[in-house]
């Protein structure tokens, strides 16, 4: 889910860029530096996941994984990871554009942060398994990304509900697959390497 160059009005581009820069700064300041290798691996996965295309009629959609990134990295590191992935995607894959980078960072990064918070509170709840929490976070990440996309496009004069509906319908298979992928991977990680979820889940994270 990317916005291309020149779609958004200049003011919105500037505002989202400023927001993204601020969020990256906060993210860099707050991330746990012991987790740099983990962040690197998750960022690389996010970067590559966009190449997994699902054919959908004449068009195709690709995996986004903001939910999984948020759930794995926690709210502090999620935004910087997403931004680095987006920068490289726009340079190497021609996804989105450099001037729309701020907007795309908001579209993908803020859902990642929200999913991280959601995953953390769900995983801390005794009634909720890690797999279920991961599935909910993974699915919701894409839903939120579609909603943010629609909201930003609405500033350019599009009708919010129209865009949101199209984006959500087009990404319905992605939402399902991401929920499955995120749930399965997080459940698997919780079984074989639970310490990897320390910063993200209930195991006493250092940062809010």
């Amino acid at each position: 889910m990317h916005i291309a160059d020149g779609v958004l009005p200049l003011s919105v581009s500037l505002a989202t860029s400023a927001l993204s820069v601020a969020a990256v700064a906060v993210s860099l300041r707050r991330l746990n530096q012991d987790e740099l290798p983990k962040i690197a691996v998750v960022t690389a996965s996010f970067f590559v996941a966009s190449l997994i295309h699902l054919p959908l009629g004449t068009t195709s959609v690709h995996l986004l994984l903001p939910g999984l990134v948020g759930a794995l990295l926690g709210p502090a590191a999620a935004f910087v990871s997403i931004t680095i992935g987006l920068v490289l995607q726009s340079i190497l894959f021609q996804f989105g554009g450099l001037t729309a980078l701020g907007a795309n960072g908001v579209i993908m990064g803020i859902p990642a942060i929200l999913c991280a918070l959601l995953f953390r509170s769900l995983a801390a709840a005794p009634w909720c398994s890690i797999t279920l929490a991961g599935a909910v976070a993974g699915g919701l990440g894409t839903v939120l990304a579609a909603v943010f996309l629609a909201a930003l496009l609405a500033t350019g004069g599009e009708a919010f509900w129209g865009v949101a509906r199209i984006a959500l319908i087009a990404h319905l298979p992605v939402i399902l697959i991401e929920a499955l992928v995120s749930g399965a991977s997080l459940g698997f990680i919780a079984r074989v390497k639970p310490e990897m979820l320390h910063s993200a889940a209930r195991f006493g994270s250092r940062h809010g």
């Binding site: 740099l36 690197a40 960022t43 970067f47 992935g85 490289l88």
Partner: peptide
Amino acid sequence: DDIITGIGFILALFGTAA
């Protein structure tokens, strides 16, 4: 090429940070 470039870039970035 693009994929390997990107992954290498990310790992190098975080490696430098570490």
